[in-house]
Amino acid sequence: MRMKIYRCNHVAPERPDVGPIFKTLISGLPSCAQGTYEGDLDGVNIANQNTHSEMRHQFYVWKNRLADYDYIGFEHYRRAFFIDPLPDAVVKARYPGVHMLRKAFTARPNSHNILAEKTLFDEYMDMRAAFSEENNAAIQDWIGHHDIIVQRAHPDPLDAQWRQHFGMNVLWSHLLIAAKKTSFFASRGATPETSMLGTYCNMYIMRADLFDEYMQFWSEAMAYLDAKVEPGQRILGHFAERLFSMYLYQKQIETPLLSVRRLPFLICNQKIA
């Protein structure tokens, strides 16, 4: 199975992700000649539109890499899915901090993330970098049994979470109108749902055909929203986080057997170069 999970960066990192599954993708740079990271200036891109945040990376992959993979995923340079395939004894002996995380996430199944010190975050990334061929094959096989993998849900409903951070202002109205106008919702005669739990930080792993469908939806919604937002506002990236929530809810409503898995994730508590 062809798969890639891109870790989205805006500068060249000290520790690029190199391997069969994880890959560092940097917006605003050409690809590294040594192959240690990929840049989005080598193809169709919106690298100069930083108001879209991580969606610049996803747009590049959509336009230039879609046909290369069966599954496509995205993380943030300071936020990483907790993917942990190693035997318990190995994790306990080699990565005691990660073992602590495993216990915490297992004991609290509703915990959607942990804010980690950089040393703990680095330990987790060290573990990922050391995955064997067998480990990576197990991860690929596991992902292939799902259609979409996302974060564990945020504890607040989508509309309440937006109100908490931005207020129920005209921007919220624009978002709802934009989503409803897309062919994804209009063709179904459906209305975007906003009362479900979940805001997904533009992080997910999904089948390539579903990623294509979502990006078509996102692109149509952004064509409307871009004209409604003052230039320079980062709100477009926040819009995308809520658009994905609406998309996922609708897909699950119309496809009850869609296999969706929710993972916890780590957030590094300081900036990473």
Rank of each mutant, 00 (worst) to 15 (best):
H99Y: 14
M127L: 14
D40A: 02
L101T: 04
R128W: 03
Y71S: 00
A130G: 04
G97I: 05
L101F: 14
T36F: 12
F74M: 04
I83P: 00
L101E: 09
S53A: 14
F121A: 06
G97S: 10
A116Q: 09
L115D: 15
I114Q: 11
G97W: 04
V61H: 09
Y95R: 06
E134W: 02
L115S: 12
N45Q: 02
N50H: 12
E54L: 06
D126G: 04
Y37W: 15
R128Q: 14
A116F: 07
P87N: 08
K103H: 13
V61Y: 08
Y60W: 15
P87Q: 08
A130T: 03
H57K: 01
A130L: 04
Y69C: 05
T51D: 15
I83G: 00
F59L: 02
G97N: 12
N110H: 12
S53M: 09
F121D: 07
F121P: 02
Y71F: 15
L66P: 06
Y69V: 00
A89I: 07
D84Y: 00
R65L: 12
E117Q: 12
M100C: 12
K103I: 09
F82R: 03
H57A: 11
K118D: 11
R65D: 10
H52A: 07
S111R: 13
H57F: 03
K103C: 12
A107P: 00
M125W: 10
K63M: 15
P87S: 07
R78I: 08
V44A: 15
K118P: 04
Y69N: 10
R56Q: 05
A104G: 01
K63W: 07
T36L: 14
I46M: 15
Y69Q: 05
D88N: 08
L86A: 06
V98R: 11
F59T: 06
R79C: 13
D42P: 06
M127T: 10
H52S: 04
Y60S: 07
F59I: 06
G97Q: 13
F59M: 04
F59G: 00
A89Y: 08
E123D: 10
R56H: 05
H57P: 01
F59E: 04
K92T: 11
S111Y: 08
N110Q: 13
K103A: 14
N48R: 15
I114Y: 14
P96S: 13
A67M: 14
L66T: 09
W62A: 04
N48I: 08
L101M: 14
F82E: 05
E123N: 09
A80S: 15
D70F: 00
Y69L: 04
A116S: 13
Y95V: 03
V91C: 07
H76Q: 15
G43R: 08
F105Q: 01
Y69E: 09
A80W: 04
